[in-house]
Amino acid sequence: MTNSLRPHGQQRAPLPPAQTPTSGVPSPRPPQTPHAGTTPAGPDAKPAKQRDAFFDNAKYLAIVLVAMGHSWEPLTDHSRAAEALYMVVYGFHMPAFILISGYFSRSFDMRADRLQRLVTGVAVPYVLFEIAYSLFKKTADDDPSHPISLLDPWYLTWFLVALFVWRLTTPLWKVVRWPVPLALAVAILASVSPDIGDDLDLQRVLQFLPFFVVGLCMKPEHFQLMRRREVRILSVPVFMAALLVAYWAAPRMSSAWFYHRDSAQELGVQWWAGVVMTLALFGCSMVLTACFFAWVPRRKMWFTVLGAGTLYGYLLHGFLAKGSRFWGWYDDYTWLYKPLGEIFVSLVAAAVITALCTPPVQRAFRFAMEPKMEWAFKRDAAELARSRSKSKS
């Protein structure tokens, strides 16, 4: 059986039971039935499972916050308020993405078709964009010495590496007795291990791991709890308190803690601070993520369709985000550091990321984001048997 959310009144598909799709987050792929893109034939065929607007809305709103956060980064050295807002948003936008990734990975196993989707939807985009980002840095930043290395993800591609590793380990987390405490223990050990190094950005992979495992353990009723009216009301003072705490902490605390890419020793503190901060940030991130989900619309909105293209927006906006630094846009227009300028930057970031998630952009870059690559894989034995039976009939 599957724990995925099911629209009211929809009947289960005939045996074998349909399983929850394993699309990643951000993900370009809509949830699919076993034969994606086809309409069931025959008078007894059941209607295809519909997307849940809540998750598409959550993915779109989270990717907008990601883009805004990247646009605020140059402003944080000049504005304490911008730094506080930056810290609050970084406290939950990636944890929210990762949690949803885990939730939609619950049915992942080592079945051939799922491994193929993992390769074409995660591994191949990683290779292509890691090369593209490296070439972009060489030229736009005038840095010819920057290496092209698939072992050292640069900028946004770390998420694809992490998603690949997390999903491969999904069967393990489904059989252990206490998956979340174990994942937290792994994250804590990573936070106090400076020798892990930069290969495959393993610090981030391991320190963000608990959010993915929480998603694996969640059920539809958990999201229903977060949608309750009292949770929405309570989330308002919680967010206000978080902003006040962040405003106080801004000059006293490094925002690098929220990136989860360094050990405690690399951040210049004692090892035990890594233990404390990992647990504290995990708790804060889970609370803020719940508050974020509480305000995500449940119904279909004008931007719901964009939730299927968040991987496009995520990876493509990185060229503009980094280009704005390489080309000195923030230095050329000093008015951007004033309150109205900060608002302008936020609106531009939201507009750009929205445009990059639209269907025309998806069609233009589908060759890189979700290539079919049928030539690279053996055909499934059951599919071959079906093809032979059809040819004989």
Results as ranks from 00 to 15, higher is better:
residue 92 F to A: 02
residue 173 W to V: 06
residue 130 E to M: 06
residue 71 S to E: 04
residue 76 T to Y: 10
residue 102 G to I: 11
residue 179 P to Y: 07
residue 70 H to D: 09
residue 186 V to E: 05
residue 63 I to V: 12
residue 61 L to D: 00
residue 113 D to Q: 15
residue 92 F to G: 05
residue 140 A to P: 07
residue 118 L to H: 09
residue 68 M to Q: 15
residue 164 F to E: 05
residue 87 M to D: 12
residue 160 L to R: 08
residue 128 L to V: 15
residue 108 F to N: 10
residue 174 K to Q: 13
residue 147 P to M: 11
residue 130 E to S: 03
residue 72 W to V: 07
residue 144 P to A: 05
residue 79 S to R: 11
residue 185 A to H: 01
residue 85 L to D: 09
residue 109 D to N: 12
residue 144 P to T: 04
residue 156 L to A: 14
residue 183 A to E: 04
residue 150 L to K: 11
residue 81 A to C: 05
residue 164 F to N: 00
residue 68 M to E: 12
residue 107 S to K: 03
residue 179 P to V: 04
residue 145 S to G: 10
residue 162 A to M: 00
residue 118 L to W: 08
residue 112 A to Q: 15
residue 75 L to Y: 10
residue 93 H to Y: 07
residue 86 Y to H: 13
residue 93 H to D: 06
residue 141 D to V: 11
residue 108 F to R: 06
residue 162 A to F: 00
residue 97 F to K: 02
residue 191 S to M: 14
residue 97 F to N: 01
residue 89 V to F: 00
residue 137 K to M: 12
residue 105 S to A: 15
residue 145 S to F: 04
residue 198 D to A: 14
residue 64 V to Y: 07
residue 112 A to G: 13
residue 121 G to T: 08
residue 76 T to L: 15
residue 162 A to N: 02
residue 151 L to M: 15
residue 130 E to V: 00
residue 180 V to Q: 01
residue 193 S to R: 06
residue 106 R to P: 00
residue 179 P to D: 09
residue 161 V to A: 09
residue 150 L to G: 09
residue 152 D to I: 14
residue 100 I to C: 03
residue 103 Y to R: 09
residue 81 A to D: 15
residue 138 K to V: 10
residue 99 L to K: 06
residue 145 S to Y: 08
residue 83 E to C: 12
